[in-house]
């Protein structure tokens, strides 16, 4: 019996490795295939506007989708180790500074959806997680997005990905700490602290590897099924910019020289909501046309980290002053990151 289980585990591992190898082989060929399809199959000149837009689209679409499938699968497995209950247990009763650091880090790996932001907020603050620590989590969870992280890595290399991760965590950490220091507990809606959360959470299930793999596959079906259209649309917009917007056209309005472009990018980005997977192809195209990295990063973070729908949801538990402080502190943090990178690089 045991032997058979070992055997099937070996077979499963072998199948997994074979799938990974096939993925890698196909991935390596994408650029060549896109070039060939554009010039030979469609008969377009690759240097022309239309040709380069089409080639961009044919190359980036399968590439981004393939990266997405791989990453979402991996993240689905990692997340099966972190439940909101476990995260809360780790954060309850933490002292502030250390708690902020831990909360920002856990925000990256704990499954989160902005539709659950309110129950999560209540679940945290009513069980002794300090308000500022809760905010560190609430800021990092949407803003440091694993999909964005890996897409940035795939499209721009590890440096940009590391910058994004590091600054995202820093904003969550500092903004949460500031909100904690401001002692704004009285601006949480009164019913929140009065909520009795006595019913027990579902019993923690122990999962074996097969169940975690199944969780990864479920995540792929769920997330890729939901975002693929945004990704394709994002790439189509990116392809248009890539082909038709002249090189350096963005340098004047989004370049380093234009200091006002950072606050403007954040101002435009905050009310917008898009999926991280959809915004990145646009980011890539803008960068290629001379936009400054800090400005583009600030735009991206404000689009995925803060949004109008999120504000409306959180209004149910936060009184306006706290909601304003939350958005204000994070927006200022994002701007600081934008300026820092434009100045550094």
């Amino acid at each position: 019996m045991n032997q058979r289980r070992n055997l099937s585990a070996v077979a499963r591992a072998a199948a997994g490795l074979a799938a990974l190898a096939a993925w890698w082989l196909v991935y390596r060929q994408l650029a060549a295939v896109a070039g060939w399809a554009t010039s030979s199959l469609l008969g377009l000149r690759r240097e022309s506007s239309l040709g380069s837009a089409v080639e961009f689209f044919i190359y980036e679409t399968p590439k981004v989708l393939m990266l997405l499938v791989l990453v979402v699968f991996g993240v689905g497995i990692v997340r099966s180790y972190f439940t909101p209950e476990r995260t809360r247990a780790m954060l309850a009763g933490r002292r502030e500074s250390a708690g902020n650091v831990l909360a920002a880090l856990l925000g990256v790996v704990t499954p989160f959806c902005s539709c659950s932001a309110v129950p999560l907020f209540i679940g945290f603050v009513t069980t002794g997680v300090p308000l500022g620590v809760t905010f560190s989590f609430l800021i990092s969870a949407p803003m440091v997005n694993e999909i964005a992280l890996v897409l940035l890595f795939g499209l721009f290399g590890w440096r940009v990905a590391a910058l994004y991760l590091g600054t995202g965590l820093l904003i969550a950490l500092v903004a949460g700490w500031i909100i904690g220091r401001l002692k704004l507990e009285r601006h949480v809606e009164d019913w929140v602290y009065a909520t009795k959360t006595d019913a027990a959470a579902p019993a923690e299930e122990r999962l074996d590897l097969a169940a975690r793999m199944a969780a990864g596959r479920a995540a792929v079906r769920d997330i890729v099924g939901r975002v693929w259209l945004y990704v394709v649309l994002g790439i189509a917009v990116g392809a248009g910019i890539h082909g038709y917007v002249p090189t350096n056209a963005m340098a004047a309005i989004m370049g380093k020289g234009a200091w006002w472009s950072v606050p403007l990018a954040v101002l435009i980005g905050v009310p917008m909501y898009s999926n991280a997977a959809g915004i990145i192809p646009i980011v890539q195209a803008l960068l290629g046309k001379g936009a400054a990295l800090g400005t583009v990063l600030a735009f991206m973070m404000s689009v995925i980290g803060l949004s109008l729908p999120e504000a409306i949801i959180l209004r149910k538990v936060l009184k306006p002053p706290l909601l304003l402080v939350f958005f204000g502190v994070v927006a200022v943090g994002i701007m600081a990151v934008g300026f820092l990178f434009n100045w550094l690089l």
Binding site: T83, C113, S116, P119, G123, F124, T195
Partner: peptide, 13 residues
């Protein structure tokens, strides 16, 4: 109703 959902101790809908 959010009040009732939170009352169950649920953090993830």
């Amino acid at each position: 109703a959010l009040e009732r959902i939170a009352g169950f101790g649920v953090m993830f809908t």
